[in-house]
C-alpha cells in the first residue's frame, strides 16, 4: 500500500473525484493559483482549469451561497474554508440554506455539497483561529459531519462525502496535514456513518475523532506500560454517529472516556455521554468522563494554549478516575 501524508490523501481524493465526475468543482480562497493555503489543492488548477478550480474573493458567505445554488442546479461543489473559524461568517448559508433546502423543497432539491477545511488549534494562532467547531454543526439537522484522523480515512471519507447527496461538513486538522500513513490506491471509499476501532483494549473505551484520536492513542501507550489496555474508537463520522460500535465497546469495557478538542459545555462529547448512559446504564461501572478543551477562548501564549488543549496526561487522569484508581 502506498504511504502518503494526510494532505496528499485529500489531494488525491479531490483529483480522483474531479476526474471521475465532471460536475465536481472546487472553490475557495487561494485554492487555485496559490494551490491552497495548506496545499491541499496542489496541482488541481493546472489539471482541471479555472472553471473547476475557482479562486474566490475573501467572502465566505458569498462563495458558500454560490456553492449551495450550484448544488441545486446539478453541480457537486467542494467549498474550501481556509479554516473552519471563518465559516462563522457563512454559517447562515450552511444552517439556513444548505441544511434545509432538501426538506423545504419536499425532496426536489438535493444539496450535494462538501464544505471542507481545517478545524481546531494549530500553534499560537490565537482565540479567533484555533476553534474546534464540530459541536455547532453536529447540532444542525440536515447536515452530515465528518472528521478524519488518518490519511486513509481522509481519502476514503472525502470521496464518500463528495458522492453523498447531502451537505457534508468535512473537518480536517492543520496539525494532521503532514502526518503520514498507508492509503489504499485507487477506489478507496469509507462509508459515512461507520466508525473504526483504532486500538483494541479491554479496560476502558476511548471515543475520539480527528486529532483527538492521536491524543487517545498516546494515552493508551502510556497506560499500556502499567498493564491498562485502552480501546480507542474513532467514529470518523459524527453525524450520523455509529452508536452501535461505541455501545458494543462500552458494554465490553464498562467504562468510557470521550476525548474532544471542542469546548466542553453543550458539546458533542456530552451528547455521546448522554447516549451511552442511556443505552449502557447497566454495563457502566463508572460515570462517563469527557475530556475537552478548557471552557475559554484560546489563549495566544504557548504555555496557556497547552494548558487549554486536551493532553494525553489529561486522558490518563480521566481513565484513572473511571477505573477508580485515584
Amino acid at each position: 500500500m502506498p504511504s502518503m501524508t494526510y494532505r496528499e490523501a485529500l489531494n488525491q481524493a479531490l483529483a480522483e473525484e474531479m476526474e471521475r465526475d465532471p460536475t465536481v468543482y472546487l472553490m475557495g480562497e487561494e485554492v487555485g493559483h496559490y494551490q491552497g493555503a495548506y496545499k491541499v489543492s496542489q496541482g488541481l488548477l493546472a489539471r482541471f482549469g479555472e472553471k473547476r478550480v475557482i479562486d474566490a474573493p475573501i467572502a465566505e458567505c458569498g462563495f458558500a451561497g454560490i456553492g449551495v445554488g450550484s448544488a441545486m442546479v446539478g453541480l457537486r461543489p467542494v467549498i474550501e474554508f481556509m479554516t473552519w473559524n471563518f465559516s462563522l461568517v457563512a454559517i447562515d448559508q450552511i444552517v439556513n440554506n444548505a441544511a434545509k433546502i432538501r426538506q423545504m423543497s419536499g425532496g426536489q432539491f438535493a444539496i450535494p455539497i462538501v464544505f471542507r477545511g481545517p478545524s481546531g488549534a494549530a500553534a499560537q494562532v490565537g482565540a479567533q483561529h484555533s476553534q474546534a467547531l464540530e459541536s455547532y454543526y453536529v447540532h444542525i439537522p440536515g447536515l452530515k459531519v465528518v472528521a478524519p484522523s488518518t490519511p486513509a480515512d481522509a481519502k476514503g471519507l472525502l470521496k464518500a462525502s463528495i458522492r453523498d447527496d447531502n451537505p457534508v461538513v468535512f473537518m480536517e486538522n492543520e496539525t494532521l496535514y503532514s502526518t503520514q500513513g498507508e492509503v489504499p490506491a485507487g477506489e478507496h471509499l469509507v462509508p459515512l456513518g461507520r466508525g473504526d476501532v483504532k486500538r483494541v483494549g479491554t479496560h476502558c473505551t476511548i471515543v475520539a475523532w480527528g486529532k483527538a484520536v492521536h491524543t487517545g492513542l498516546a494515552a493508551a501507550k502510556l497506560l499500556a506500560a502499567e498493564g491498562i489496555e485502552l480501546e480507542v474508537v474513532d467514529p470518523r463520522t459524527l453525524r450520523p454517529l455509529d452508536e452501535e460500535l461505541i455501545f458494543e465497546s462500552v458494554k465490553k469495557t464498562g467504562r468510557l472516556v470521550v476525548v474532544q478538542e471542542s469546548w466542553p459545555v453543550a458539546s458533542f462529547g456530552v451528547d455521546i455521554a448522554y447516549r451511552v448512559q442511556r443505552a449502557c446504564m447497566d454495563e457502566l461501572d463508572a460515570p462517563v468522563e469527557v475530556v475537552s478543551s478548557a471552557d475559554v477562548p484560546m489563549p495566544y501564549a504557548r504555555n496557556l494554549e497547552l494548558e487549554v488543549l486536551p493532553s494525553a496526561d489529561d486522558v490518563v487522569a480521566a481513565v484513572r478516575r473511571a477505573l477508580y484508581l485515584v
Binding site: V138, I140, A266, V270, D271, A273, Y274, R278, P287, V288
Partner: peptide
Amino acid sequence: EAPRTCGFAAELSATISERAMAWLEAPVER
C-alpha cells in the same frame, strides 16, 4: 424544543448523570 443531537439537554443529562449517578434509578430522559 431544539433538535435532539448535541442539544443543551445532552449537557444537562450528562451533568446530572455525572453528579448524581449513585442516586439515579433510571437513565436521564430527554
